[in-house]
């Protein structure tokens, strides 16, 4: 479904991504991990065009996202994204956050958008908070709203950029529970995360990155039991400690 072909990215002289290739099939859950600054966030933001790249290519459903007839807004509305810092719209209520793009981008009418939104809020357990503003919610609640907001666009793929790393420990599980459910329903997911418990539970594959390169890509079980590279062993060792 998504194919990254030896993608490289530079910030001026600094090479942020080196020759990265990954393929993600429909319904697969792929975890991207590695030390901070390894380029994993940049890599998944390439998929919906939030970051650009200088060489290589990215295919979405077999078609290059760089080809002339691919419009980025069109592509992005089919790819959901959840951010580390939630990025809810603070001037809109929870319900407003879930309906604005449905109405303005998908041109759904207000009643339909609202119905869809309430259904999703139900699903993430926040129906009662529909009228509140983001600042009135806890971090965990905000992130669940953000997931619901992405789902309101009926995405084909979901990107998660460290969805739990800005959360207090006691709130991480409520967000992960929503993500596990999503994975089990067959959503195609690309997740940058260090939640190894989550990874073991749902991931099909793990991509380990360091210094802009993909060091190893492996079957989830195999990666955790016996990582092939020295860097990955070192990294996992630090995580467990």
């Amino acid at each position: 479904m998504i194919e990254l072909k030896s993608v490289s990215k530079w910030y001026q002289d600094f090479q942020a991504l080196k020759d990265c290739s990954v393929t993600v099939g429909k319904g697969e859950v792929v975890i991207f991990c590695g030390p901070s600054g390894s380029g994993k966030s940049s890599l998944i933001k390439l998929v919906n065009g939030l970051e650009d790249f200088q060489s290589g290519d990215i295919l979405y459903k077999g078609k290059s996202i760089r080809s002339r007839d691919v419009r980025l807004p069109e592509l992005r509305r089919r790819i959901g994204m959840v951010f580390q810092h939630f990025e809810l719209f603070p001037h809109l209520s929870v319900l407003g956050n879930l309906t604005i793009a449905q109405q303005k981008v998908l041109k759904r009418d207000a009643a339909e958008a609202e119905h869809k939104a309430m259904g999703l809020l139900d699903r993430v357990g926040l129906r009662a908070h529909a009228g509140k503003y983001p600042s009135q919610l806890s971090g965990g609640q905000q992130q669940r709203v953000a997931i619901a907001r992405s789902l309101s666009m009926d995405p084909e793929v979901m990107l998660f950029d460290e969805p739990t790393s800005a959360l207090d420990p006691e709130m991480i599980n409520e967000v992960l529970a929503v993500m596990v459910e999503l994975a089990q329903e067959g959503m195609t997911m690309l997740c940058v995360t260090h939640e190894m418990g989550f990874a073991r539970q749902v991931a099909d594959r793990v991509v380990f990155m360091d210094a802009g390169s993909i060091v190893e890509t492996g079957d989830c079980a195999a990666f955790f039991v016996a990582p092939r590279s020295e860097r990955a062993r070192d990294f996992l060792g630090k995580l467990l400690r």
């Binding site: 933001k45 919906n48 065009g49 939030l50 980025l72 807004p73 069109e74 992005r76 509305r77 089919r78 790819i79 959901g80 994204m81 951010f83 810092h85 990025e87 809810l88 719209f89 604005i100 793009a101 303005k104 981008v105 998908l106 907001r149 992405s150 666009m153 990107l159």
Partner: peptide, 21 residues
């Protein structure tokens, strides 16, 4: 840049992101 990214990730074009977000 987060709010721009969030609006863009929902498929909003520049005008829409500017106008609504």
């Amino acid at each position: 840049k987060g709010q721009f990214h969030a609006a863009a990730a929902l498929g909003m074009g520049r005008y829409q992101a500017m106008r609504y977000i």
